[in-house]
Simulated scan of single mutants.
Amino acid sequence: MERIELRQLRYAVVTSDAQSFSRAAATLNVKQITLSRKVQQLEERLGVKLFKRSTRGAEITENGRPFIEQARRIVTDVDNLRTTARNVSYGLQGRIAVGYCTPLLAGNLRLAIAGYLTKFADVQFDGIEASLEKLFHGLQSHALDVAVAPIGFGEDGIVSRRVWSERLFAVLPDDHALAEKEQLYWQDLRREVFVVSSVGLGPIFGNLIAGRLTEQGKRPNIIVQDTSLESVLSMVAAKRYISIATEASQGVSWTDICFHEIHDPTGPARLEYALYWRKNNDNPALRRFFELIEERYPG
């Protein structure tokens, strides 16, 4: 078999995510004909049709699905190696790579990172926003030192520590009838149509909504959009959906929407966060990060 290029794997992975050769080419800043030709050459070398092509785009085939997932891991590992190599020489007092799945608009994570950058100015700090799957893969592959994510996840060799919680809010059009309620409970939201992101905290929010509002086998109406949390919140202003966010999302000014705190029977609904790291990580910069966290959020 002829040699398979890393570039071909990357083109195939991005095409799978974009479900379109034209969108994938735009994402990678290459000509569509170049990308399409490289993917076709890859299919010929493998003897497997990866995509079903149509006027609607490029749909991954069943035979192509396991190959794309393996290709994704290879591309991610190579990118992580490059990042590690590029940053070896950075930082007079070491380097720390911190992963997270929530935007740094405001909140405890932003304060913790800002505090670390101020206190340890000579440490190279690399922040990586990614999905939960990629965060844990980054920990296992040594590309990340620590990840900040909601509690309840675990893998072999990974330990965790609770750090903080953030209040949960319903994100509503500013003229929504529920915006006038003095206190908003989960059950008040049971007839609403939710929109959540497919990335970041979106899957967490989707599971949370389903867990709170599924009744007698009937699940709430949740629409998943392949876009960022910020774009999802902007869509709420169109008055077709509502969404869920943490208090950190109030760090910027939003137009035509409002944030209404959600309550459980026992008090404000909250999302709990934890730090996750490898047991055997002896990075001195990570130890200093833990010291700062312990000062601010005693465990």
Rank of each mutant, 00 (worst) to 15 (best):
L233E: 02
R278F: 01
L233C: 09
V224A: 04
S253C: 14
R270K: 13
I242W: 05
A238D: 12
M235F: 14
Y276S: 02
S243L: 05
S231R: 13
K279T: 11
Q250L: 14
S243R: 01
R240H: 11
N280L: 09
M235P: 01
A248T: 12
W254L: 12
T266K: 08
C258T: 15
D256R: 15
E215T: 11
A237E: 13
R240W: 08
S228D: 04
G267T: 12
F259A: 07
I244F: 02
H263R: 12
T255Q: 15
H263N: 12
H260R: 14
Q225W: 03
I242K: 01
D264L: 04
I223L: 12
D256C: 11
R240V: 10
W277N: 01
T246D: 09
T227I: 12
R270P: 00
A274S: 13
M235K: 12
I223A: 08
I242D: 02
T266M: 08
P220D: 06
S231F: 09
D256P: 04
G217M: 11
N280W: 00
Y273G: 00
G251V: 11
D226E: 13
N281G: 03
R270N: 09
S253H: 14
V236E: 01
H263S: 08
E261Q: 14
I262A: 03
L271K: 08
D264I: 06
S231L: 13
A237C: 11
T246N: 13
W254K: 06
A245F: 05
A248Y: 05
I223T: 10
P268F: 03
N221A: 11
D256Y: 14
G267W: 03
G267Y: 01
K279W: 04
E247L: 07
A274Y: 02
A269Y: 02
N280T: 12
S231C: 09
P220V: 05
Y241Q: 07
